[in-house]
């Protein structure tokens, strides 16, 4: 059996998630035993003009060109994976949707903004069907490997439907609230093994809101810690603005 053909494509993003894949280290050798990478701009210049077994899409969809391009990639791909928060939830690019498009265009391109037509930011699944989601800004490498194994086995990958706190507690971190800091862990999707908190940082919510967040309750919690409500709204909008388009 020939190895599945895998490709990576980037849209509006910082390419940090592809970098995470390229820097995956030792498992890369084993990975290359089971898949054939046919397109990956970050690390190789070859292109492929046939069908892809698995396409990883990094970045969000922000203009008509991108819409056309992602549709074509979808047609050529048996399985399509959204890679990283820009692709899965719109990510930080979603902040654009808080402003009128004209204002955004002028801010970036000045008076020539009309030559650069733009759209509201969309996550990949808001434009074409997506089969697998790998959240994170950037993605968490072990989760990438887990998802890839699921794809190759032909089984679904379930993004945890519980918050980062669950993993954080099992890692026995001192809770950020005990340190007098604010942490988005209680309303953020798990799956990163509480990566940031393990390394002494707060969770800033990069994987997006969990499926059923108690945002009202969370506001009450922040009140108890004397944190203003709009602080939370801003933190949520930083990654979750595109949710409004779901």
């Amino acid at each position: 059996m020939s190895k599945p053909k895998v490709a990576f494509f980037d849209f509006a993003c910082c390419e940090g998630c592809q970098l995470q894949v390229a820097n995956i280290g030792e498992p890369l050798i084993d990975l290359l035993d089971i898949v054939q990478v046919v397109e990956f701009r970050e690390v190789m210049s070859e292109k492929w003009d046939g069908e892809f077994d698995v396409s990883f899409i990094e970045g969000s969809i922000t203009d008509e060109h991108a819409v056309e391009r992602i549709k074509k990639i979808r047609e050529r791909s048996k399985i399509l994976v959204a890679l990283g928060s820009c692709a899965t939830i719109g990510g930080v690019n979603g902040m654009k949707n808080s402003f009128p498009l004209e204002e955004v265009g002028k801010y970036v391109y000045g008076e020539s903004y009309k030559f650069f037509p733009t759209l509201q930011t969309k996550a990949v699944h808001q434009v074409v069907p997506v089969d697998y989601f790998i959240n994170g800004c950037p993605i968490y490498q072990p989760e990438f490997i887990t998802v890839l194994k699921c794809i190759l086995q032909g089984i679904p990958y379930y993004v945890p439907e519980y918050p980062v706190c669950v993993e954080c507690k099992l890692n026995e971190n001192v809770c950020m609230y005990d340190r007098g800091l604010t942490c988005m862990g209680p309303v953020t999707k798990a799956g990163c093994n509480s990566w940031c908190i393990n390394n002494g940082n707060i969770c800033y919510g990069c994987r997006g809101l969990t499926i059923n967040p108690n945002t009202e309750g969370f506001k009450e919690v922040l009140k108890k810690y004397n944190i203003p409500e709009d602080f939370l709204i801003k933190k949520i909008e930083m990654y979750n603005k595109c949710k409004e388009l779901d």
């Binding site: 519980y162 918050p163 706190c165 669950v166 507690k169 099992l170 809770c175 862990g185 209680p186 309303v187 059923n212 967040p213 108690n214 009202e216 309750g217 969370f218 009450e220 919690v221």
Partner: peptide
Amino acid sequence: EQKCLSCGNCTAV
């Protein structure tokens, strides 16, 4: 219902 964030901390510990 309003207060709990369903973070699961109380059961993990």
